[in-house]
Design a protein around this nucleic acid. Structure first.
Length: 587
RNA sequence: GGGCUCGUGGUGUAGUGGCCAAACAUGCGGCCCUGUCAAGGCCGAGAUCGGGGGUUCGAAUCCCCUCGAGCCCGCCA
């Protein structure tokens, strides 16, 4: 290797050393006489100075170099002349005085500027991802991601975990997201599925006695994109034998504290992480992944309007619903148009409507105000703690709907009122989820977390008798409004596992076809076990304060699941399809 | 599948019916310039305003269709 130093590593302590550097032209400043080039490599930027009177050949190379040319330069590392130091640059005390320069490779004019942090069209960035990744912000994100992964590996290794890989070509599951399928050449008409997570195999590893497993696991889900969702993503997946819920929680909490303290500028809002039951999280913040960085908690106003003649409230209360609200500070000044937009948003979130009541000097203003008695409005204001100039946002609906809609509106309020401190990481555990949830459209039960999650009371008859009322051993890690991860203490007794599938509406045959291999494994001395999986990208997003999962992946796909750099997906050769016994029926 | 927002020189923006045969910054080309660090100064090239159709005396601007992008809802054990 010819290079002697990395550009960004040079400091005053290197002064006097002879350096050979290789890197990219970040910027060039041509003074006609002197030329300055900021040379950049992964470590950073250093100024190189070219003097035409001393080294005319090197100066000529520098004068022809443009942005992103790859240069090799050679010369002494020198303290800068007094008064020309640049304190903004880590290498600003020194410069390299070039005595020789060579263009290793030129660059075409760029489709966008690497040396500038600008908001660019994303399809352009993705098409030229190799240029995008040269930008400071993206480089930092990718480096931080590597640091997070290394922290995870080091930490789990210290605690006796072993990293085990599980197959990428695996079996399709009945429940969950849509699978990515891979046709089998050897078995016509049969398919592998890419794993949505290594869930079943990690449990089988526990049966295998491997005791403490982890994996930085790639997962695939063929669902539509979101800001925090990609078709393929990475999880920290782990599983432990002979543990209880608290063992997993404490293990993960210590890991995430270490990650936050070593990989992020942001500060932990609380440690240890607070724990809230699912019921409390929904009641107070309207979400099972609440953003705990700000208040604006939900208020139950059902009692305050219990006797009301206002039909929108009384009808809902009579049907077993609730009337709940939040206080938006200062929103009494919202225009009619803004208020209408808010109501539309509430409807999009699933509410039948939204009652807005502005707190003004002479009472409450809003469409519903005239239907409420003075006593009622007085009680509402008192209970909610709303002050002059605030606006009450009230939803009357079934408890889950009201909580969900207000939870989303709460985030909107937090954002728009600048109540959120960007510098904070507010982790919290959400525990005591219900084991199962009723699907009215399908007339059956389904699991809340995954079908392998155990109940706190592991009694087959009790579960059968009241599936929705049984508390489970599920736990989620939430942070700043994201679900970072979730896990559970699992079912390790085959007869209990069968009850769950029975409640989900599967026949004995369907159950055997789907998870017969696991049920069989559990007959051979399965240890009690539990684990968790957290999203790596979401973790890194939180550490570097990025709002989008694509910013922490080297080569993400766009909103329509395309890779714009490689141009995937793409058509394939007829011959490949024949080999796979695939015929196309395009609509 | 649905809703919302956006699409103007290479890039990022301004322009919301005539003042626009489109402006600014940056990048690009040329010239000048020996201590800059987003170097500076002067000159120049570069856009049929995503595409198609319509309304109008007149359209980047209004309407319809279409393509593309992003965000959200549905979906996501």
């Amino acid at each position: 290797m010819r290079r002697t130093h990395r550009c960004g590593d040079l400091t005053a302590s290197h002064a006097g050393q002879h350096a050979i550097l290789q890197g990219w032209v970040h910027r060039q400043r041509d003074h006609g006489g002197l030329i300055f080039i900021d040379l950049r490599d992964r470590a950073g930027i250093v100024q190189v100075v070219f003097n035409p009177e001393i080294t005319p050949d090197a100066h000529k190379v520098a004068s022809e170099a443009h942005g992103e040319y790859v240069l090799e330069i050679e010369g002494p590392v020198s303290l800068r002349p007094a008064g020309t130091e640049n304190s903004d640059l880590p290498t600003g005390a020194i410069e390299v005085v070039a005595i020789r320069a060579e263009v290793l490779n030129p660059s075409l004019p760029l489709p966008f500027e690497v040396s500038r942090d600008a908001d660019l069209d994303e399809s352009l960035r993705l098409r030229y991802r190799y240029l995008d990744l040269r930008r400071e912000r993206m480089k930092n994100n990718i480096v931080t991601r590597a640091k997070v992964v290394k922290t995870m590996r080091d930490y789990l290794d210290e605690r006796g975990f072993i990293e085990i890989e599980t197959p990428i070509l695996t079996k399709s599951t009945l429940e969950g997201a849509r699978d990515y399928l891979v046709p089998s050449r050897v078995h016509p008409g049969e398919f592998y599925a890419l794993p949505q997570s290594p869930q079943q195999l990690k449990q089988i590893l526990m049966v295998a006695g491997l005791d403490r497993y982890y994996q930085i696991a790639r997962c695939f889900r063929d669902e539509d994109q979101r800001g925090d969702r990609q078709p393929e993503f990475t999880q920290l997946d782990l599983e432990m034998s002979f543990v209880e819920r608290n063992d997993v929680l404490e293990l993960m909490e210590e890991l995430y504290i270490r990650i936050a303290e070593t990989c992020s500028q942001r500060k932990l809002m609380a440690k240890p992480f607070p724990r809230y039951s699912y019921e409390e999280a929904l009641r107070r913040w309207g979400s099972d992944k609440p953003d705990l960085r700000f208040g604006v908690e939900l208020v139950d106003l059902s009692d305050e309007v219990g006797e009301t003649t206002f039909n929108a409230f009384s009808a809902v209360l009579a049907a077993g619903g609730v009337v709940k609200g939040i206080v938006a500070p200062g929103w009494a000044s919202l225009t009619r148009k803004e208020t209408d937009a808010l109501i539309d948003q509430a409807k999009q979130f699933g509410a039948k409507g939204l009652v807005t009541l502005a707190v003004e000097a002479d009472g409450l203003r809003g469409g519903a105000a005239k239907f409420l008695s003075e006593q009622e409005t007085g009680r509402i204001v008192a209970r909610s703690g709303a002050s002059l100039g605030d606006m009450l946002l009230i939803v009357a609906d079934q408890p889950l709907v009201a909580a969900d809609v207000l939870g989303r509106l709460r985030l909107e309020v937090g954002r728009r009122c600048n109540l959120i401190d960007d510098n904070l990481l507010a982790f919290g555990w959400i525990i005591d989820f219900p084991l199962m949830e009723w699907l009215p459209e399908e007339n059956r039960w389904t699991f809340m977390h995954n079908p392998f999650c155990s109940a706190i009371v592991m009694d087959a008859d009790a579960i059968r008798a009241n599936p929705g009322g049984i508390a489970s051993n599920q736990y989620d890690l939430a942070c700043n409004g994201y679900e970072v991860g979730g896990g559970s203490i699992r079912i390790h007794k085959p007869e209990i596992q069968r009850v769950i599938y029975e409640l989900m509406g599967y026949s004995k045959e369907e159950t055997e076809a789907s998870i017969g291999h696991m049920l069989e494994a559990f007959e051979y001395g399965a240890p009690p076990h539990g684990g968790i999986a957290t999203g790596l990208e979401r973790t890194v997003m939180l550490m570097v304060d990025e709002p989008n999962i694509r910013e922490v992946m080297a080569f993400p796909k766009n909103q329509s699941a395309q890779d714009l750099l490689m141009n995937a997906p793409s058509g394939v050769d007829e011959r490949q399809l024949r080999d796979l016994h695939i015929g196309l029926h395009l609509g």
